[in-house]
Design a binder for these strands. Structure first.
Lengths: 194, 194
DNA sequence: TATATAATGTTAATAATTGTTACATTACGT
DNA sequence: ACGTAATGTAACAATTATTAACATTATATA
């Protein structure tokens, strides 16, 4: 068998079985383990395969390995428009997308410390900003047609304040916003009391 | 079996069974208990799993994924159309979807305080709104072809009232609606098409 | 055929994993 | 609180895998 054939077989084997042992490959393909090691070296370097002690496992391609729950809002299921969206970076290469800061902040509150980073986008420039340092505008008269109560995100406080001057509403910091949205949305707690 | 395979199996086992004993894993996977201890150490450190004496339990509340029960209505099994749907955000990252406010409110009443948030969508704009602050229209002449007695949801009271003016029915607040639907006691199972 | 080159195999040293033992800690019944 | 059985942990031994160096084989080409 040609070396190239053998390497193709290794690829297909690891793809179909997810993981294979070096010793198994050696026996299956009738070559020494040293040869298998040499065969898989380029596969590991290309990232097609991940080396484990004693074997290899198939590496799903990189875009897949970041597990986006889906393209839909993690909370309300609405299609996500990046400009309004709010993204939560989580452990294990997971990213959750929310359709807007409204859903994003609610989800952020649910996850708490598990959130490694939260990202949103400036309402004017669409530049990426950290949610923790963003400024949030609520109760404004402008309706972007996403979730209510609506929350817009700004990178600069002065621009958020200027927006409020023109269109009404309130400017909130991250900690204020995450509480305010929760209070406005939390139903059962209030329902139970009242 | 590869060490990496074994660790994957442990993860899946604890996920599916919620908790497993070290001794059980040791026997099941054919390795010593010491090896199981070493296998679970990183899982515990990552917070994927919680150590208990003699075993481990799956750490819920983790980002992993929001567990949507399914795409079908939790009550009547009908396919869920987002625009009419009613979503219940529950502890442990669970989300239940109901096909419409009718089923949603019935389910909401069943679950009571377990519901962290309830979400529905404005009938006109499809914007996401909190069920608590929504306005519900019942007994209207318009039939959207979901469950009976039909309940439509509006974000704005004036629009709900305008709708009633044009098409008949009654505008109800959340607490009025959840009671009214319950009193009518009609499970959509009896009317549902599928 | 001779020879260079690439591929593969062999061996031994090194590194990683796993098992065993001894002892510490915890849970639980008395 | 105490004693006992179960479980956890650390140290070390045994096993297994990896790596590098070198030997051997196969292949191509003059």
């Amino acid at each position: 068998m040609l070396a190239s054939e053998r390497r193709e077989k290794i690829k297909k084997l690891v793809q179909s079985r997810n993981s294979v042992k070096i010793s198994e490959l050696s026996e299956l393909l009738g070559v020494s383990e040293m040869t298998i090691h040499r065969d898989i070296k380029p596969l590991v370097e290309e990232g097609i395969v991940i080396k484990t002690f004693g074997g290899i496992t198939y590496a799903k391609n990189r875009s897949e390995s970041i597990k986006r729950s889906s393209d839909d809002c993690v909370l309300c299921g609405r299609k996500v428009d990046r400009r309004l969206s709010y993204k939560l970076i989580l452990p294990d290469n997971e990213v959750e997308s929310a359709c807007c800061a409204h859903c994003g902040l609610l989800r952020h509150r649910q996850l708490g410390d598990q959130v490694i980073q939260a990202i949103c986008y400036d309402f004017f420039s669409s530049t990426t900003i950290s949610a923790l340092s963003a400024w949030f505008v609520m109760d404004t008269s402008v309706d972007v047609g996403c979730c209510q109560p609506q929350v817009l995100t700004f990178g600069r406080k002065d621009q958020a304040e200027g927006f409020v001057k023109g269109f009404g509403g309130r400017v909130l910091s991250f900690s204020e916003a995450i509480d305010k949205v929760h209070v406005k949305m939390a139903c059962c707690k209030h329902h139970g009391r009242g």
